[in-house]
Design a protein around this nucleic acid. Structure first.
Length: 702
RNA sequence: GGGCGGUUAGCUCAGCGGUAGAGCGCUGCAUUCACAUUGCAGAAGUCAGAGGUUCGAAUCCUCUACCGCCCACCA
């Protein structure tokens, strides 16, 4: 044995050995066996990383966490499945690709839809293997034979089917609504893809005849259809039912009453612009006032007097403000500090616009999800995340699932050009319109929101991986993404999983924290504190990096990663290796069994007692997802109790202690294996064991 | 404005009702006998503050002060 454990030399070989041996593939019992004494399966569907991106340090923690659970349950003899995959990450990936195009002086409009799609497809295929190679380098013991990509045809088919079912059940509808539209990205976003920034704007008090209204967006006055006041507001009581006059265009509009108006804001009178404001849209619908659009999808003024036509809204605002002042219609202005929605990609202000989209009616699905949580069918390891999930469900609005991009699953809906009726299918082009028999059907150019398809991931993967997988492995055991995608993904998986299968998609939700830098700062490119996991693996070994991401903080909490810590864990791996070197220096009795371990020596008895207690603590900690506790306990036992104390004491009676030393080392390797798979397997090899450690049984306390 | 957390040794964090813990860092000593990617010894904390519950509180409750994170259609 080398004096120092060299991870770079063994990791690749060991990973290949595991993979070749089919150790990652679960042994699914036959039905007959399953009725007897076979253990329950343990399943984790891996949150699919973005196919186009290399893994970041956060993925290391995710892999370390899930792989530890997977290896532990596998060693306990449960049929264990960890299903890997990749996500097409619609908007993210299309934007990265468009950036690349723009560097070449091109844009998406230079290509037709199919060409663009194919180009992105090729680009993603090129990069997908990077991520897979990195998962291997980290030691992820996932079942590659069941690998899935969110755009695999069989997955797409499932997504189509779900959409069609939702449509049939009336849970999905086509609606013209105010959506958050980014004129720069030329797509609409959902509630979740909107960031907020605080800003100072002018609040203009404008003369609308009998009333004065306050607005930050004077350029939208061309789209005004009413003025609204709160019905309880005494000062306007007599004006309700009368008319106000929109300045510049001198249009008469009704003065209406609606409780959505806050009497304490501005003058208590609100101009109603249903085409460009969500609240106004709602008020407009209640009062049967049709919306008018004066800003188009490229962010230009339309349907307005010549002087403003084609201007960007900001320019139009300046113009309108000037004209209002000339006409003496501006009563006063004041500064307003408020929050505006911006595009989460570019931070450009979003334009609330009318747009036809597919919406998912969320309420019935929310109800079922909450009920499943009430009944304990899904459990959160941290109560605070359950609170967050409930809070989300209670505030969720209908979900806009259409995106105006190419990269994704195209919505299987066709509109009849003749009568306007929509036909939704499981993917095949319909022959004719169901309503008018018209033959001219045009497919919706939009694609699904990525989260709509990934929300179906647990059942979509299992229904298409191998025959019988869904029946055997679903509902899965643990779902473990980072907590920051709880609202994007977890609550959607629960809703869609319950809807499509009638069962929860997972029994336990374990949400892990983020990896931060050594000062506890968030890791970001702009801060320049990114840590490349592969660089760390090459320098210190995968085991060291993995343990460092688990060490020191609860799974659910954020964890600071410092290179010092990684180095410390590398030292620990070396310590393990050197304990084995010490043990192997003595001639060995290969026949020694546990039953031979009756020793009257007090040191022997003590280390065996301590081993027992370690087994108990580690097992209990793993069952409770307290990985840091398990790892810290093992570190203490192996380094300080075994190496520093016991091993030193055996030096005076070396041969006699050999069976105990060997026994304790082997059990220690088993206990450490979920966390440090490479060094433990490499050491196990040196001990001359026939069976691989990955397939060895988990130790039991006496 | 709403929600969720945090405040424990220089740093990063465990502990969550019974005499303050870990890793890293720091200070001394040891020097090659498995490992210097080492060993031994050590310094270091009124557990944010104030009240309360309890025989007993870092741990439970209330309030206060800071610090985070998430959400939000007062135009």
């Amino acid at each position: 044995m080398e004096k120092v454990f060299n991870p770079a030399e063994v990791e690749k070989r060991i990973y290949e050995k595991w993979e070749r041996s089919s150790a990652f593939i679960p042994k699914v019992p036959t039905k007959k066996q399953n009725h007897q004494t076979t253990k329950q399966p343990f399943t984790i569907i891996m949150p699919p990383p973005n196919a186009n991106d290399p893994l970041h340090i956060g993925h290391t923690r995710e892999v370390a966490t899930q792989d530890a659970l997977i290896r532990y349950h596998r060693m306990k003899g449960e049929p264990t499945l960890w299903l890997p995959g990749a996500d097409h990450a619609g908007i993210e990936t299309q934007f990265v690709f468009e950036k690349k195009l723009s560097k070449e002086g091109k844009s998406r409009s230079d290509f037709d839809r199919n060409t663009l799609y194919q180009m992105i497809w090729d680009y993603v295929q090129q990069n997908m293997h990077v991520m897979e190679g990195q998962l291997r380098a980290l030691g992820a013991s996932c079942d590659w034979t069941r690998f899935k990509f969110t755009l695999d045809p069989e997955i797409v088919k499932i997504v189509y089917r779900t959409f069609q079912k939702l449509h049939e059940d009336g849970l999905v509808y086509r609606g013209e609504r105010i959506v958050n539209y980014c004129p720069r990205c030329e797509t609409a976003y959902s509630q979740l893809e909107v960031d907020s920034v605080e800003r100072d704007d002018q609040l203009y008090y404008l003369d609308y005849g009998p009333v004065t209204i306050a607005t930050t967006r004077p350029e939208t006055i061309f789209a005004d259809v009413a003025v609204a006041v709160n019905p309880k507001d005494k000062k306007y009581k007599d004006l309700i039912g009368k008319t106000a006059i929109v300045p510049i265009v001198n249009r008469e509009v009704p003065i209406i009453a609606d409780e959505l108006v806050d009497p304490d804001f501005g003058t208590g009178a609100l101009k109603i612009t249903p085409g460009h404001d969500p609240t106004d849209f709602e008020i407009g619908r209640k009062h049967d006032l049709p919306p008018i659009s004066v800003i188009d999808k490229k962010g230009r003024m339309i349907n307005v007097p010549e002087a403003y036509l084609g201007l960007k809204p900001e320019a139009a605002r300046d113009q309108v403000v000037a004209d209002l002042e000339n006409k003496g219609k501006t009563k006063k202005t004041e500064k307003l500090h408020h929050v505006v929605g911006v595009c989460y990609k570019h931070k450009t202000p979003l334009e609330p616009l009318l747009h036809e989209q597919w919406f998912l009616k969320v309420e019935p699905l929310v109800k079922k999800s909450l009920a499943a949580m009430d009944k304990g069918e899904v459990k959160f390891t941290a109560p605070r995340f359950e609170k967050t999930a409930r809070h989300w469900y209670e505030n969720l609005r209908d979900w806009n699932i259409s995106r105006q991009i190419v990269w994704g699953i195209r919505i299987p809906a066709w509109r009849c050009e003749k009568c306007g009726e929509w036909a939704v299918t499981e993917g095949e082009t319909p022959e004719r319109c169901n309503k008018c028999q018209g033959k001219n059907l045009v497919q919706d150019p939009d694609t699904f929101d990525t989260w709509f398809s990934s929300g179906q991931w647990p059942f979509a993967t299992l229904q298409t991986a191998q025959k019988g997988d869904f029946e055997y492995f679903y509902p899965t055991s643990v779902m473990d993404p980072a907590y920051d995608i709880l609202p994007f993904w977890v609550i959607r998986m629960l809703m869609l999983g319950l809807y499509a299968t009638g069962e929860v998609p997972f029994r336990t939700v374990l949400l892990h924290g983020l990896v931060r830098d050594k000062e506890g700062q968030k890791i970001s490119k702009s801060k320049g504190n990114v840590i490349d996991p592969i660089e760390m693996v090459q320098k210190y070994g995968a085991d060291a990096l993995r343990v460092a991401t688990i060490w020191g903080a609860l799974v659910e909490n954020d964890n600071s990663l410092s290179e010092d810590n990684v180095r410390g864990q590398r030292n620990f791996a070396n310590k393990i290796w050197n304990i084995a070197r010490f043990v192997l220096m003595e001639k060995r009795d290969l026949k020694s069994k546990i039953s031979d371990l009756k020793s009257s020596n007090e040191d022997d008895r003590q280390i065996l007692r301590e081993l027992d207690s370690t087994i108990q603590i580690v097992t209990k900690a793993l069952d409770a997802y307290r990985l840091n506790e398990a790892v810290e306990e093992l570190y203490e036992f192996v380094w300080h109790k075994l190496a520093d104390v016991y091993l030193e004491k055996t030096k005076s009676r070396r041969a006699e202690a050999q069976p105990i030393l060997e026994f304790v080392l082997k059990d220690s390797l088993k206990l450490l294996h979920p966390f440090m798979p490479f060094v433990t397997e490499a050491t196990w090899e040196e001990l001359g064991e026939k069976e691989m450690l990955i397939s060895s049984p988990w130790p039991a306390a006496k």
